[in-house]
């Protein structure tokens, strides 16, 4: 414990009984929070017979890597992993680019109804898309885009735009309009101003949004369930769901499948942790 604490802790005492009690309870709750993850991971590494004979939190006596290979093959993970990767890698950067352009236009170019357009866009961030799954299916179907990459990426883009515009608009608004106007007089186009001035400034926010959106897209289930009917187009969450219903009695492989599905997002989270918090909070809770 250092004495530079900015918060409530009194610097004069090094060990405060209340804080020690607090710390112990926080650690205990954290252990409970982590327990399901540990249980799943351990089960994934145990042989089928060990799952039934050993205690829930007993470490596996021998790690059965084979579970992962078998789950991978049975669950057709080659396919679903590939689809998830393609969809995420196309959707996330593309979505950020169009959102950033829109946010820039709304924040920096005056054309009368900026505010109305902004509210119109923000509205979408609040509307649960789960309500519109049927008309969404009808629409995508009428465009004959069911079971295609554009057929899922376009709706993903549409429902990603509001939140990202909201956050980025907040940032762009803080940059004085005079700067843009001066650059315009000097002959720079909006594209150049956007790329040279705004993009570098908001790089950290863009990074945060990129990571949040990566996880959200990677995990999305309901829309994929409706728009990707054909097995060959399924994403990871759909694959896991079907794995569960087909092989639910093979516990160690089921758990291996869960681990495979969850691992990429978890790794991204662990690596880019601090961006998550800033991305989530920069828009929602401003002082």
């Amino acid at each position: 414990m250092t004495t530079t604490s900015p918060i409530v802790v009194a610097p004069r005492k090094r060990r405060d009984p209340v804080l020690i009690g607090l710390w112990i309870s926080l650690v205990l709750v954290a252990i409970i929070w982590l327990a399901p993850v540990a249980f799943i991971t351990f089960t994934a590494m145990k042989s089928e017979s060990e799952v039934f004979s050993s205690a829930a939190f007993a470490l596996p006596s021998k790690i059965e890597w084979n579970n992962f290979a078998l789950a991978w093959a049975k669950g057709d993970f080659n396919n679903t992993f590939w689809n998830s990767t393609v969809i995420t890698l196309v959707k996330v950067p593309l979505g950020l680019v169009i959102s950033a352009m829109a946010a820039y236009a709304l924040a920096q170019i005056r054309f009368g109804w900026n505010k109305m357009l902004l509210v119109f866009l923000l509205f979408g961030a609040m509307i649960p898309f789960q309500v519109m799954l049927a008309p969404l299916f009808t629409l995508v179907n009428s465009l004959s885009l069911i079971d295609t990459y554009p057929g899922i990426i376009l709706p993903y883009l549409a429902f990603g735009v509001p939140y990202q515009v909201f956050i980025l608009h907040g940032f762009f608004k803080a940059i004085p309009k005079e700067l843009t106007e001066a650059a315009l007089i000097d002959g720079a186009s909006h594209f150049v101003i956007f790329r040279r001035i705004f993009l570098p400034v908001c790089l950290p926010v863009l990074a945060a949004l990129l990571i949040l959106d990566f996880v959200a897209t990677w995990n999305e289930f309901a829309m994929a369930l409706v728009l990707l009917q054909d097995k060959s187009m399924w994403t990871l969450p759909l694959g896991l769901m079907s794995f569960q219903s087909q092989f639910s009695n093979n516990y160690s492989q089921l758990n291996a499948a869960i681990v495979i599905t969850v691992l990429p997002a978890t790794l991204v989270y662990l690596i880019f942790q601090r961006y998550f918090v800033s991305g989530l909070t920069s828009g929602a809770v401003k002082g």
Binding site: M1, T2, S5, P6, I7, V8, V9, L19, L22, W23, S25, L26, V27, A30, W33, L34, V37, V215, W218, N219, F221, L236, P237, L240, M241, Q244, L254, A257, I258, T261, V262, A265, T266, V268, Y269, L270, Q273, F276, V277
Partner: peptide, 29 residues
């Protein structure tokens, strides 16, 4: 609790936030 100056509060925060990034369908499974 985690706003206090505690040992290991960064990992503690990370643990509590971890389930948020797990796909809801994986949580269900």
């Amino acid at each position: 609790g985690l706003n206090q100056n505690l040992i290991g509060r960064a990992p503690l925060r990370a643990i509590y936030y971890l389930p948020v990034i797990i796909a809801p369908i994986a949580v269900a499974t």
